[in-house]
């Protein structure tokens, strides 16, 4: 989260010529370095975003593509037709609000569980001796080498009525009737927490590994019990890691479609499935686009503001 106070000037051996040209153009090497990600964001974020914004202001129709054009060129006159009805429509039906709230709830609960499970794991990895640390980190990352979809399907095998968990519980006599776990919200939570757990562990680990042992020793020298040290030293210092990990879990979990579609029940109402319905069942791309943009405005913008405020307060405290 810290940026170098003064940019260091290093002269690359081959760079002086390039640098001279660039400075003639009013560009510095730094501008160029920033230009690449900026261009990337422009092409792969801003342009698609504007396309979606455009579709959200058009009208659905049976055609290819299935929406009207918002402008037309007629005898030298440019006509612009913006249809805001799609946004108003979202207010008319409580379904959309309910779906937003349900998505936030599922994402929030999943984030809390991911944190509760991920924190001890990250802590253990960070406190392990160097030799073992890499192996443990590897074990966290390893599942990424198989397809995400396959791993979700594997959970179907675990959770279904005739699945492994029920077979085990029945065989050991813990239950008499198979538990119905698949196609429930429970399965969705399991799926989301499982899938996004590494996104919680890695930033937490990166944070906890920097924790200075001297601080812990000082706390214990001053008479703090381990629990006290954890609550007053480790935890406050881990806050940036907790926030970063929680964001990485919370934000994608809100828009999650695949996990609820495969593991969830029919009454698992998330914004992803509402979008799917608008897009596929209603063939109403404009309303689908409006749903997507409202989600961006309602959920992502406050998160960005929060993030900014947090960064500012961190900067102030340093």
């Amino acid at each position: 989260m810290s940026s170098p106070a003064t940019p260091r000037k290093t002269k690359l051996p081959f760079g002086s010529f390039l640098e001279r040209i660039l400075s003639k153009l009013g560009l510095r090497g730094r501008t160029l370095v920033i230009a690449i990600p900026t261009l990337w964001l422009f092409v792969f974020f801003l342009v698609p975003f504007l396309v979606v914004a455009k579709i959200s202001l058009s009208e659905a129709m049976i055609a290819r593509p299935p929406y009207s054009s918002i402008w037309n060129w007629d005898d030298g006159v440019l006509n612009l037709t913006l249809n805001f009805g799609n946004y108003l429509f979202l207010l008319e039906d409580t379904l959309y609000f309910a779906a937003y709230m349900e998505s936030v709830k599922i994402a929030f609960v999943s984030t809390v569980f991911a944190l509760l499970i991920g924190f001890p794991m990250a802590y253990t990895i960070a406190r392990s001796p160097d030799s073992r640390r890499n192996i443990l980190l590897m074990l966290v990352i390893l599942p990424f080498w198989t397809s995400f979809l396959l791993r979700v399907y594997a959970w179907i095998g675990f959770l279904k009525t005739n699945g492994l968990i029920n077979a085990f519980l029945l065989a050991t006599g813990i239950i008499d009737e198979p538990l119905i776990m698949l196609q429930t919200d429970f399965a969705v939570y399991v799926g989301i927490v499982y899938t996004y757990l590494p996104f919680m562990i890695l930033p937490l680990y990166a944070n906890l590994v920097k924790l200075d042992d001297a601080l812990l020793e000082a706390a214990s020298d001053l008479g703090a019990k381990p629990a006290m040290t954890f609550l007053t030293v480790t935890l406050p210092l881990a806050v940036p890691g907790i926030i970063a990990g929680s964001m990485l879990v919370f934000i994608p979990a809100i828009g999650e479609f695949v996990i609820p579609a495969l593991l969830g029940g029919p009454d698992t109402l998330m914004i992803g499935s509402v979008l799917w319905n608008e897009f596929f069942s209603n063939r109403d791309w404009p309303v689908a686009s409006a749903v997507a943009l409202v989600m961006l405005a309602v959920l992502v913008v406050p998160i960005m503001i929060l993030r900014k405020a947090q960064a500012a307060s961190e900067g102030a405290s340093q």
């Binding site: 659905a60 039906d93 379904l95 029919p266 009454d267 109402l269 069942s281 209603n282 063939r283 109403d284």
Partner: peptide
């Protein structure tokens, strides 16, 4: 037609989710 399609999808969502 589009109106009936929307009604059918909406009813179906109500059936499935209770919303």
């Amino acid at each position: 037609n589009a109106r009936t399609d929307r009604l059918i999808t909406r009813l179906w969502t109500t059936v499935k989710t209770g919303q």
